[in-house]
C-alpha cells in the first residue's frame, strides 16, 4: 500500500473514531481495473498536493511578509512582468502533461475491452434493484453478482427504465446504466471476498436503497454456485409450510412480477428461483432472514420508498406470509 494511502486512511480512521472497515472504499482496489485507476489517482494526487503546498505557502508568506505596518513606504506600483507571466503559464501546462499522458493511457486501458474467454454478464438496472444475466451460462440472478477469482469479467451495463450507474468501488470505476445504450467494464478480481456497491446515478425515490454486492469466489466455489443456480427450484416437501407457501405464491400477485422457474414467468421484479441462496434481500438492504423477508412482503414501500412492489398485506394474512417466507427460504 503506497504511503499516502496509509496516511489518508490513518486520518480517516482517526476522524472516524471506530473507523473501518470501509466496504465501499476506492482506496483499496481489489481488481486490475481498480488498481490502474488507483495508481493514476495516486499520481495526480501527489502533483495536486505539491501544487497545493507550494501555492498556499507562497500565499501565506506573502500575507505575512507584506502585511500592513506603520511607516511602511508606499508600495512600488508594479504593473506586471512578462517573463513571470510566461513562466507561470508554462509551469502548470508542463505539470498537466504529466497528468494527461498517464490519463490517456489509462482511458484506453479501462475502456471495457476483455479477452474472448471473459465471463460475460449483462447488468440491467431497474428502479431500484439490479438484474444480472450470465449469457453463456444461461442463468439469471439479482442484486448479488458472483464472479470467479482471477478470471476476466466483462459487464455489459444497461437499464430497463431510468439512468442508473453500476458501481462496486473496490473492483473499479462506475459506468452509467442507460436505457437503450450498453456500457462495458472489464475487470479481473484479485482477492476472494464480498464487495459492496450501489447505484451511483440519482434514479428516483429509492436511489439510496439500490445497493448491490459482488461476491468474488474461488474458481471451484464459483462453479458450485453456478451449478446450484442452474438447477431448477427446490420443490417443497409435501405437507410442509413451504409447500403451502408455494400455493400462496402461485395464487397471489407475486407471479405477475417474479420468475420462479417452472412456477411463474414475471419479469418486473427480481428472479426468485434461488432467492434462498442470496445473503440479502431488497437490493442489498436487509439480511435474508425470515423476519426481514416477512416484513418486506407485508409492506415493501414502507421499507423502500417508492418501491414498485406494493403492500401485500392485505390481501395476504400473517400465516400466508409465514408460509411464503418458508417457501422462499427453501429456494436455495
Amino acid at each position: 500500500m503506497p504511503r499516502y494511502r496509509l496516511w489518508l486512511l490513518t486520518v480517516a480512521l482517526w476522524v472516524a473514531g471506530c473507523g473501518g472497515p470501509f466496504p465501499q472504499t476506492t482506496l483499496e482496489p481489489r481488481s486490475d481495473f481498480g488498481s490502474v485507476i488507483d495508481q493514476l489517482f495516486t499520481g495526480i494526487f501527489w502533483w495536486a498536493a505539491g501544487v497545493f503546498l507550494v501555492v498556499e505557502t507562497l500565499l501565506v508568506i506573502t500575507l505575512i511578509r507584506f502585511r500592513h505596518r506603520e511607516g511602511r513606504p508606499a508600495p512600488k506600483p508594479t504593473h506586471g512582468h512578462t517573463l513571470m507571466e510566461i513562466a507561470w503559464t508554462l509551469a502548470p501546462a508542463a505539470i498537466l502533461v504529466f497528468v494527461a499522458v498517464p490519463t490517456v493511457r489509462t482511458i484506453f486501458a479501462t475502456a471495457g475491452e476483455a479477452p474472448a474467454d471473459a465471463l460475460k454478464v449483462d447488468v440491467i438496472g431497474h428502479q431500484w434493484w439490479w438484474e444480472f444475466r450470465y449469457r453463456e451460462l444461461g442463468l439469471v440472478t439479482a442484486n448479488e453478482l458472483h464472479v470467479p477469482l482471477g478470471r476476466a469479467v466483462q459487464l455489459s451495463i444497461t437499464s430497463a427504465d431510468v439512468i442508473h450507474a453500476f458501481w462496486a468501488p473496490p473492483l473499479g470505476g462506475k459506468r452509467d446504466a442507460i436505457p437503450g445504450h450498453v456500457n462495458r467494464i472489464a475487470f479481473r478480481a484479485d482477492r476472494v471476498g464480498v464487495y459492496d456497491g450501489q447505484c451511483a446515478e440519482f434514479c428516483g425515490a429509492s436511489h439510496a436503497n439500490m445497493r448491490l454486492r459482488v461476491v468474488v469466489d474461488s474458481d471451484s466455489g464459483f462453479g458450485r454456485w453456478a451449478t446450484v443456480q442452474l438447477a431448477g427450484p427446490a420443490a417443497p416437501a409435501a405437507g410442509t409450510l413451504a409447500e403451502r407457501g408455494k400455493a400462496v405464491f402461485a395464487r397471489s400477485a407475486c407471479i405477475g412480477c417474479h420468475t420462479i422457474q417452472g412456477v411463474s414467468p414475471g419479469v418486473i421484479g427480481p428472479n426468485l428461483t434461488h432467492v434462498g441462496s442470496r445473503a440479502t434481500i431488497a437490493s442489498g438492504l436487509f439480511p435474508n432472514d425470515s423476519a426481514h423477508l416477512a416484513s418486506w412482503i407485508a409492506d415493501a414501500p414502507a421499507l423502500k420508498p417508492g418501491s414498485l412492489m406494493t403492500r401485500m398485506k392485505p390481501p395476504l394474512k400473517d400465516d400466508d406470509i409465514a408460509a411464503l417466507v418458508a417457501y422462499l427460504a427453501s429456494l436455495k
Binding site: 476506492t26 485507476i37 493514476l40 489517482f41 458501481w167 473499479g172 462506475k174 451511483a200
Partner: peptide, 10 residues
C-alpha cells in the same frame, strides 16, 4: 482525468 473520475463522479 476520466478513469479517476469513474471512481469520483456522483
Amino acid at each position: 482525468s476520466p478513469p479517476a473520475d469513474l471512481q469520483q463522479t456522483d
